[in-house]
Nucleic acid binder design. Structure first.
Length: 110
DNA sequence: CGGATGACGGGTC
DNA sequence: AGACCCGCCATCC
């Protein structure tokens, strides 16, 4: 269990360091941490962070397609999209426009 | 212990 | 482009 919690911690740390106006993907986070876990586990960590109320900018984490796959986990369905739009992103059809341009690779931290 | 589930990703058709 | 499948791993039943 200890290793799992440690993994969650790393995920939170990376998410917290996502620059303003930037977004990243679950797979990128998993890769940056060490790819010891799958991208699926990163999403699970995020889901766990909701309960912990870690205050993470979870809206800045989307899947590799730039799709807001986790919007249903927010209190309000459109909260995730609203937050992204508030940061200057353009969301259309639950997908971030110009995803490549606003994508931030956490691998740069290491 | 085995199968199902999921904020995923990569590959195939 | 879109649908499908498989591997991935923590958690639940």
């Amino acid at each position: 269990m200890k290793k799992t919690e440690d993994f969650y911690e790393k995920v939170y740390e990376v998410v917290r360091q996502i620059p303003d106006g930037k977004v990243t993907s679950y797979g990128a986070i998993a890769k940056a941490i060490g790819a010891t876990k799958s991208a699926r586990t990163v999403g699970y960590a995020m889901n766990n962070s909701l309960k912990s109320d870690a205050g993470l900018p979870a809206h800045r984490v989307v899947n590799r397609n730039g799709v807001l796959t986790g919007k249903h986990h927010f209190n309000e369905i459109d909260l995730m999209q609203k937050r992204l739009e508030a940061e200057g992103h353009v969301v259309e059809n639950d997908q971030i426009k110009n995803f490549q341009e606003v994508f931030w690779d956490p691998f740069e931290l290491y």
